Amino acid sequence: MSTPAPAWMNEDLRIFQSSVRRIFENEFVPRESRWLAQGYPDREVWRELGRLGLLCAGIPEQYGGAGGGFGHEAVICQEQFRAQLNSFSLNVHSNIVGHYLLNYGSEEQRQHWLPSMASGDTVAAIAMSEPGAGSDLQAVRTTAVADGDDYVINGAKTFITNGYHAELICVVAKTDRQAKGSRGISLILVDTREVEGFRRGRLLKKIGQRGQDTAELFFDNVRVPRRQLLGGEEGRGFAQLMEQLPRERLLIAIGAAAAMRRAIDETLEYVNQRQVFGQRLLEMQNTRFKLAEAHTQATVADCFIDRCIQGVIDGTLDVPTAAMAKWWTTQLHCQVVDECLQLHGGYGYMEEYPISRMYTDARVGKVYGGANEIMKEVIARDLERRFN
C-alpha cells in the first residue's frame, strides 16, 4: 500500500516541488563537489538562489519574499536535503533569521533587511553557540553593553553556519551582565560591512557537510546602533529563541527524513545491480529484510513529519512535539544510513559513492539545533508537568 499524499501537499506545492527538485539537480548539484573541496560555496550562489525565488519563500511579498507559507519552506528543505546540497543553509538564512526579523523586527528592520535577504544580496546567519555554550544558551558570555546610542559587543562565537559569507549576523548576547540564567539575553543585528572590530576566524573542518561554511566569529568592541536590537526590548532574546525553536527543530527533522529516503533509494539501486555469489544482492533475504525495515521506518517518519508540518500551518505545533520530531528522525536517519552503507559493502566506505557522504553528513543532526539529549529532557519535563 502506497502512502497517501499529505493533506498539506496541494497541487500547487507539488508543481513547486517538481520545479525546486529540477533547479537543485541541474543548477547546483554539479558544483557541490567543488564546494566540498574549498570548504564553502561561492558567494554568487546566494544571488542565484535569490533570482530563482528560493530565498525567503515564506516571507510576505511586501518585504521582498515570495509570499508563500510553511509548505513552500518545507518543500525547499526536503529537496535540498534530498539532493545532498549541504554547502549553503537556506534554513538558517530564510527560515530562521528571516522569520526572526518578520516576527520580532521593527518595520524599519524588516524593510531594511528582508528584501536584500530575498535577493541574495545579503547572507544571514545566527550566532548562538560559543566555545563554552552550545545547547545551553543560558550560558552565553558574549556581551552587548549600552553606551549612549550604541551597543558595544564583545565575545566569540563558534560553529556558525553561513559564517564565512554572512553580512547580517543575529547575535545572541547578554545586555544585562548581572542577570542570571536566561534573563538579560537579547538579539542584536550586526551588519558586518559597517562595523569595526568584527573578524572571522578559521573555517572549521568537519567530518561531514564539508562544503558548509561553518566559521568562528569574533567581536572586539564592535559598536552597533541600539536601534538594531531585535524586538525593541532588552532581555527578550531567550523568549524569542524559545518561541521559534519548534519550527527550527522541525526543519531539521524534515531534512533528516528527506535524506533518509534518498539513502534508501540509492541503496535500492545499488543492490539491484550488484552481483554477489551469482545473484543480485537484492535477491538475498538479509538485503530484502534490511531494506524492508528501513522503508518502514522512513514511512513512519514521513507520516509523523507530515503531521508536524500541518501543525505549523495550523499554528498548533508545540515545543515537546517538535523535540520528539527532531531527536527521533535524526537518530533514525543515522541508523538507516548506517544500514544502507553496510549493504554497499566496501564500496560504501569509498567517497565516490554518495552513501559515504550521506553517512558523515547525517551525524551532526543529533547535535545541532539542540543535542538530542536536550530534546529528551524537553519531552520529559512536559511529561512531568502532568503530575504538578
Rank of each mutant, 00 (worst) to 15 (best):
H72M: 08
G67S: 09
D213V: 03
E167S: 12
V152P: 11
S94C: 05
Q275V: 10
F304V: 15
N372T: 13
A57L: 14
R357A: 11
A5D: 14
L230D: 03
M284S: 10
R227V: 12
T192W: 09
D121R: 10
F277D: 14
E73G: 13
A173R: 05
L168E: 05
L54N: 06
D42H: 07
T192P: 07
K366I: 06
R307L: 14
E196K: 08
K206T: 14
N10Q: 09
Y347N: 14
G163C: 01
M350W: 11
A239R: 13
R262V: 05
G50K: 07
A298C: 12
Y270E: 11
Q209W: 09
K206D: 08
G71E: 05
I126H: 06
L49M: 00
G98Y: 04
G71H: 05
H72Q: 13
R141F: 07
P354R: 04
W8E: 06
E130T: 02
Q111A: 12
R183S: 14
A133Y: 06
C340Y: 05
Q297V: 15
A292C: 07
E293H: 11
D338L: 10
R110W: 08
R22V: 05
V364F: 11
G53Y: 00
A57K: 11
K206E: 13
P246C: 02
F24I: 13
E243C: 09
Y349F: 14
R247T: 05
G148F: 00
T296L: 08
A127S: 02
V172R: 09
R386L: 13
V364D: 09
L229A: 02
K180C: 06
L54G: 06
Q335Y: 12
R200D: 05
V190D: 04
I207R: 15
P30A: 02
Y100N: 02
T287Q: 00
A66E: 15
F289C: 13
V172G: 04
G370P: 05
K376T: 09
P131S: 09
D338M: 11
L55G: 02
P60E: 01
N162H: 01
E216W: 01
K206A: 11
E48P: 01
Q38P: 02
A215N: 14
I169C: 02
A256K: 03
W35P: 13
V364W: 07
M128Q: 10
F81Y: 08
I153H: 01
K326Y: 00
I96T: 10
L204I: 04
H333R: 03
L383I: 14
L341C: 01
H99P: 08
T316M: 04
G64S: 00
T330N: 06
V271T: 10
Q84Y: 06
L36N: 15
E243S: 10
Q228C: 11
L282R: 13
A156H: 09
T330Y: 00
S33A: 15
Y270N: 09
A215P: 10
E167Y: 01
L101D: 06
S182W: 07
I309C: 03
R82A: 05
I169Q: 06
H165N: 06
L282C: 12
E351Y: 13
Y353K: 13
L102D: 10
D176Q: 05
A139V: 07
M1R: 11
T3R: 13
T175Q: 07
D176P: 09
A253Y: 03
N372V: 14
R247N: 00
I160Y: 02
G211K: 08
L189S: 02
G148I: 01
A37L: 10
E384Q: 12
R307Q: 15
W327A: 09
Q17D: 11
E11P: 08
T329V: 08
M324L: 14
